[in-house]
């Protein structure tokens, strides 16, 4: 593959984009982590590419780009989906949450406060290289929202859409079940 700096870092104004792409770009408004942003995108831009390449929210990862790994998992209207298999232009009326939007501002210390699942992933050593982790955590948030998992086996089955190349699964399951057990109202 021929990767030039231009294709790696296309910004809204990038002069290095091929002319055809610039010509067919159109305004697309996305609401990501509560913030509305108008982008200029070609219709074929996936939500994943829009987040990473045009909004520079690189927490969401691209593993396979074909729905087979879960690295790109984000929440759309609080439901977990694969950002690689939807077009940005299809998500104009939705609320998108990425890993960058999970932590909140701690008013007292004015530092950012991790989401309980982020905290649990650290506490349970639930990653090694960390590449799958943003997808795992967003997926786990979706899992808790859905409320169908009752046991560790349920967690394993309902988290099967997130592959971990490092095999950090025991820690991942432990992290998720710990949060599940501490929030009985959400399960």
């Amino acid at each position: 593959m021929n990767l030039t700096l231009g294709t790696l870092l296309p910004t809204n104004e990038s002069p290095s984009l091929p002319a055809i792409q610039t010509a067919t770009r159109q305004p697309v408004t996305l609401t990501v982590n509560g913030v509305k942003t108008e982008l200029q995108l070609a219709p074929w831009t996936s939500l994943l590419d829009a987040l990473r390449e045009y909004m520079h929210l690189t927490g969401t990862k691209k593993g396979c780009d074909h729905g087979q790994c879960g690295a790109c998992t984000v929440l759309v209207n609080n439901k977990r989906i694969n950002a690689c298999l939807t077009l940005a232009i299809m998500q104009e009326d939705t609320q998108i949450t990425t890993i960058e939007g999970l932590s909140s501002l701690d008013q007292t210390s004015s530092s950012s406060k991790l989401h309980p699942l982020q905290r649990a992933f650290i506490d349970h050593d639930a990653f090694q290289c960390g590449y799958c982790t943003p997808g795992q955590i967003c997926s786990a948030v979706g899992l808790l929202n859905e409320g169908h998992a009752k046991t560790a086996d349920d967690v394993r089955e309902l988290m099967s859409g997130n592959i971990c190349r490092c095999g950090a699964y025991p820690g991942i399951v432990a992290a998720i079940t710990s949060v599940m057990d501490s929030q009985p109202t959400t399960v």
């Binding site: 729905g67 879960g70 977990r80 989906i81 694969n82 979706g142 988290m159 099967s160 859409g161 997130n162």
Partner: peptide
């Protein structure tokens, strides 16, 4: 079939 994410889509 598929995964939880895919079934949501």
């Amino acid at each position: 079939g598929a995964s939880a994410q895919l079934r949501n889509m």
